[in-house]
Amino acid sequence: MENSGDNGAIELRLADSAQLFNTLDPFPFRERDLAPEAEQYILDWAETLPKDQPISIIVHLQSANLDRHRDSDLQQAINGWFRAREAGEARDMKTLFRDGRIALCVGFVMLGLFMLLSWTVAQNYDNPFARVISESLVIIGWVVLWRPAEMFLYDWTPILRRKRLFHRLAEARVTIHHAGRPGETPADGA
């Protein structure tokens, strides 16, 4: 497997198209999972490509066995895999924001409770130990809001970045080249 060096192109050199897929997956070719190594290779190269250009994936197969139907299935399988991964990231982001809203509500309730406890301790006791307890309750109340703030400020950005990358790969133009057929026009995918 190699990168062609062209802008927006990822080249894969394989003995057979089956190398792209998880061998333990029982589903038909078009619905199979990409092998983790193949997916990671494609992702690693895709992350280095210019963000403003479409991606093309060029698969060089050593087998000279030309089968347009199988080539079309291969194109659909690659694009479909990354489309499914994009949908998974969209679900993860939706779940993150839902969980963040719940955590924020719990955080505000707990902050209010700790502030009330702090105020109660400060009103009823007038000694240095009570002041330490009162201030500690205020700090704990604010710490409870730390995780919801982290979710809304930072946790969504890597998910969005992966979702965008998967979208680009789902829209990638997949081209299949067969060895021994140099003059032949390759099948083009999405």
Rank of each mutant, 00 (worst) to 15 (best):
S4V: 01
G5E: 13
D6G: 05
G8V: 04
A9E: 09
A9V: 13
A9H: 08
I10C: 03
I10W: 00
E11Y: 01
E11A: 07
R13T: 06
L14A: 06
S17Q: 08
A18I: 00
L20A: 06
N22Y: 02
L24W: 10
D25R: 08
P26D: 09
P26V: 04
F29T: 01
R32P: 00
D33R: 12
E39M: 11
E39I: 03
Q40K: 13
T48P: 02
Q53A: 14
I57K: 01
I58H: 11
L61G: 04
Q62P: 05
Q62D: 09
S63G: 12
S63M: 11
L66E: 13
D67Q: 03
H69A: 10
D71I: 03
S72D: 11
D73H: 05
D73Q: 12
D73I: 00
Q75F: 00
A77K: 00
F82V: 00
A84I: 02
A84C: 04
A87S: 14
G88A: 12
D92A: 15
M93L: 15
T95F: 14
R98H: 14
R98K: 11
D99N: 15
I102W: 14
I102R: 15
A103P: 14
A103I: 09
A103F: 09
L104K: 15
M110V: 14
G112H: 12
F114G: 08
S118I: 07
S118L: 09
T120V: 07
T120A: 14
A122P: 10
N124Y: 14
P128E: 02
P128F: 05
F129R: 06
S134L: 01
E135D: 12
L137Q: 05
L137R: 11
L137P: 08
L145E: 03
P148D: 05
P148L: 06
A149H: 10
E150L: 06
M151L: 15
M151A: 06
L153E: 12
R162M: 10
R164K: 15
L165Q: 05
F166A: 04
L169K: 04
R173S: 12
I176P: 00
G180I: 02
R181K: 10
R181A: 15
E184S: 10
E184T: 11
D188F: 05
D188M: 03
